[in-house]
Design a protein around this nucleic acid. Sequence first.
DNA 1: CGTAAGATATTCT
DNA 2: GAATATCTTACGT
Length: 185
Amino acid sequence: MNLPDLHSSVSGAKALLGYELIYESPAGVVSGMIVETEAYGPDDPAAHSFKGKTMRNAAIFGPAGMIYIYLIYGMHYCFNLAAGKESEGQAILIRALQPIQGIELMRRRRGDVSDINLANGPAKLVEALGIPFSLNASMINTGPIQLRPYETPKQITTRPRVGITKAAEWPWRYYITGNRFVSRP
DNA sequence: CGTAAGATATTCT
DNA sequence: GAATATCTTACGT
């Protein structure tokens, strides 16, 4: 297997940087290098799993490598991977990609934006890759979504997570230092 | 450069 | 009724 170390959300968030995330659909192959992630849970008031399992978040409680896709603000989808042991409720949010394959397809899906803006945000990358919500609760590397090593980051920057109010000071956001495709350097 | 508003599903109070 | 792991457009400095 080409899976990174997902034994916890924090170690997985760091290990995923530099991996290539690939989605193969009938429309074509699109992929990008993961340049920014955030860790959620366990015992994390900002995590969707904190208040227990619901219909929406059940995939977080699956085995490491299960895909969790959720709808936020009624409009945007975000892509996560479950981490840790089954039913621990840990997840890693993929926040930004550097486009590699299928850039023309991404441009068509994202509309009239500059290349830097194709996938430099959690909802942007889902739209750019064209990942459908139907892949929620499926496993990475067993279906159309694949992960493989691409590049080893030279340096990783650690910062507080973006867009949350609970546990906002926890430094669980990681990105490749100096990469231009990070959402908020 | 900056701040503000709008879209609107799911969950919690 | 209010908040939320967001993005885009509009408008003020």
